[in-house]
Design a protein around this nucleic acid. Structure first.
Length: 575
RNA sequence: UGCCCAAUGGUGUAAUGGUAGCACUACGGUUUUUGGUGCCGUCUGCGUAGGUUCGAAUCCUGCUUGGGCAACCA
């Protein structure tokens, strides 16, 4: 279980503090049991990572267990494809569940419980339309009115409930409702629907059931059946908690109500600026082809971050830093970036890549001569070793690293100025050659043979160091430069505003907010050391950023994704 | 005009009645064969009005602002 990002804490968040307190008091027989309860209706995103780190992380830290439970009570939205992807992503994040459960495993028990409630006069079958039921529900400021079916005989409800599950009742014709209180200020207590008819086959139980429990009648009960002690979820479920407790009190038949039961505690879900986190909207992006798939590196899904080059530990570290509170925060994406930079800085092998190439010719270097230069793999890690790179008179350098007329603080290649070629020689720029349109097509320089790296002559102070590649000793590669998908800080709110003002479809609102520069594909060059690079391997392209080998990459066609740029103080000066 | 929850630098998060701290960001400086990293430093904060107390970010009340709740979704 990952512990690398769990730095010594001077204080615990309110959820962990409660765990410590409960354990100290010997609650639940001293057990700690949690669960991660995804609905298999989409891919996991970084918001889920926040829940995963809590559910699995605290269980592990305090000797408890965390089970995986798929909340699969709505077959119209759920699919096996999502079940498999969710499991893969949890493992990738670095966690292992105890049991793999499904809410659908409890359908028989839930059914029996519902029957019991009917027999006790605490539930009834309502035959009104959803519109009628909604109208009778009242509003937050006005109490609801009771359904005409509310006090029908128990036997009648029992018979109809059985019928609901037989396949002969059409969807929407009947529901089972808990009989609680139509005037309760908590809307969820106004005779909530606990079972409805769904005819779509279920991905696990097929056509065995036609009556399916609603969330409020499945989630807490599943927790109870499994022996969950701490049930953590996000803030929007605060208003559900009284109902959660109500049904568990019923299951416990009024006995031992204060102990040996699951308790729900809510925390703030993750909001990230310049990021949209809602499975419904992410699904639209995929279906409309705005992105290439759920694992498009611009997606905030875990598989998207993986393909982008984020490491599991960087995501865990980020989650650890943002904390858990009851305040609805908007977190800065820069914090996530700092986490991945911190991680990759320590681990990624440094290589040379010229993303936007321009020719550099060393005019006084013997033609045909080739020298092998030594490169440190990672200056942060002496154990990482070295590798070799070929040097010659015909080079590529970054187009950005030459300016014919440069400002004073420009330390790179400009006529008359010395610059160090990383791991090779100090060279002096002598000029450039342009095409008919005036574009620079080649830069010329002379090298100083005494300044080869490692020789005493190399100790000379030179302001700038640039990277390079030998044109006859490098590989071409496709480099995908990713940037944020959204131009606005809070796409969720901006979308809502556009939809309200223009009355347009979600996808149209989205298109107005997308960053047109979220992906730039470059025809670049990388050093031959990368010929064997494997998918998902991380590298630092020196002076540029961290990159990850895309799964599409093959030895004949290398593809790299930019995970994140290096911090660039020149870019700031240059603005 | 109901019920519930919240509010600490630009962002996020600590301090649990006793010196408002940390991280990110921003901006300086320093080191550096990555304008990276490291190191040092600077700026900016308890929503508001009362009350309790020797003492309040913390407890109480009002106000303000924000969020959630009226799916046969979870």
């Amino acid at each position: 279980m990952p512990t690398d990002e769990q730095e010594k804490k001077t204080s615990l968040n309110f959820i962990e503090a409660k765990v410590v307190e409960d354990l100290a008091e010997g609650k639940n027989g001293g057990r700690l049991q949690t669960r991660f309860p995804p609905e298999p209706n989409g891919y996991l995103h970084i918001g889920h990572a926040k829940a995963i780190c809590l559910d699995f992380g605290l269980a592990a830290r305090y000797g408890g267990t965390c089970n995986l439970r798929f909340d699969d009570t709505n077959p119209t939205k759920e699919d096996l494809e999502y079940v498999d992807a969710i499991k893969e992503d949890i493992r990738w994040l670095g966690f292992q569940w105890g049991h793999e459960y499904y809410a659908s495993d409890y359908f028989p028990q839930l059914w029996d419980f519902a029957v019991r409630l009917i027999k006790e006069g605490k539930a009834y079958v309502d035959e009104q339309s959803s519109e009628e039921i909604a109208a009778q529900k009242g509003t937050p400021t006005r109490p609801g009115v009771e359904s005409p079916y509310r006090n029908r005989p128990v036997e009648e409800s029992l018979a109809l409930f059985t019928k609901m599950n037989s396949g002969e009742v059409e969807e929407g014709k009947m529901v089972l409702r808990a009989k609680i209180d139509m005037a309760n200020p908590n809307m969820h207590f106004r005779d909530p629907i606990i079972y409805r008819v769904v005819k779509t086959p279920h991905h696990r139980t097929g056509n065995r059931w036609y009556a399916y429990p609603m969330y409020d009648f499945a989630h807490g009960q599943s927790d109870f059946f499994e022996g969950v002690t701490h049930s953590w979820c996000t803030l929007e479920f605060v208003v559900h908690r009284p109902l959660y407790d109500y049904f568990i009190d019923e299951l416990k038949e009024g006995k031992d109500l204060d102990d040996n039961r699951p308790r729900q505690t809510e925390f703030n879900k993750l909001n990230l600026n310049y990021t949209l986190l809602s499975k419904r909207n992410l699904l639209i992006l995929v279906k409309e082809g705005v992105v290439n798939d759920w694992d498009d590196p611009r997606m905030p899904t875990l598989c998207g971050f993986r393909r982008r080059g984020y490491t599991p530990s960087s995501i865990r570290k980020f989650v650890d830093k943002i904390g858990y509170t009851t305040y609805d925060a908007l977190n800065d994406f820069a914090l996530l970036e700092s986490a991945v930079r911190e991680d990759l800085n320590a681990t990624a092998t440094r290589v040379s890549a010229v993303v936007r190439p321009i020719k550099l010719t060393i005019t006084n270097y013997p033609e045909g001569k080739v020298e092998e230069m030594e490169c440190v793999n990672n200056p942060e890690d002496p154990e990482a070793g070295t590798h070799r790179i070929a040097f010659s008179c015909d080079l590529w350098i970054e187009a950005d690293d030459f300016m014919e007329e440069a400002p004073k603080k420009y330390y790179r290649m400009t006529p008359g100025q010395e610059v160090r070629l990383k791991n090779a020689y100090i060279v002096k720029c002598t000029g450039c050659r342009k095409d008919e349109q005036g574009n620079v097509v080649e830069v010329m320089a002379e090298y100083d043979p005494e300044t080869r790296s490692g020789l005493p002559g190399a100790d000379r102070k030179v302001k700038g160091t640039i990277h390079w590649l030998s044109r006859n000793h490098c590989l071409s590669a496709e480099v995908r430069l990713y940037d944020r998908l959204w131009q606005v800080e809070n796409p969720r709110d901006s979308m809502a505003k556009i939809i309200e003002e223009q009355g347009c479809e979600t996808i149209n609102a989205m298109r107005q907010l997308l960053n047109p520069q979220s992906l730039e594909v470059c025809h670049s060059y990388v050093e031959t050391y990368l010929s064997e690079a494997k998918p998902l391997e991380h590298f630092q392209f020196q002076r540029i950023g961290y990159f990850c080998v895309d799964p599409d990459s093959t030895p004949g066609h290398l593809v790299f994704n930019r995970t994140v740029t290096l911090k660039d103080s020149w870019a700031k000066v240059n603005k």
